[in-house]
């Protein structure tokens, strides 16, 4: 399977996941400030961290078994 290039290294994965985390974080602010949707903090953030962790673990496992992996 061909990997997206940002997943080829752990450094790229770290930057990518933190960027996704920041975007997810800011989406809650947008929902609250622009649309008046009050998403409860604890379940939202716990859910977000859980999803990002699962994605991270999955990508890392995929990365370590892929021939595209960079050293």
């Amino acid at each position: 399977m061909t990997l997206p290039s940002f997943v080829r290294t752990r450094g790229g994965m770290l930057v990518g996941l933190v960027m996704l985390g920041a975007i997810g974080f800011e989406l809650r602010t947008v929902a609250g400030m622009l649309f008046g949707i009050d998403l409860p903090a604890a379940p939202y953030f716990i859910g977000m961290v859980a999803i990002l962790s699962i994605v991270g673990v999955y990508l890392d496992v995929t990365r370590s078994t892929s021939p595209d992996t960079a050293t």
Binding site: G11, L14, V15, V18, G21, A22, F25, E26, T29
Partner: peptide, 17 residues
């Protein structure tokens, strides 16, 4: 070093927001 710059980005995204 990479973790450091990414941590700064994450910390600042939280704090400044």
């Amino acid at each position: 070093a990479l973790a450091q710059v990414v941590m700064w980005f994450g910390g600042m995204a939280l704090m400044s927001n």
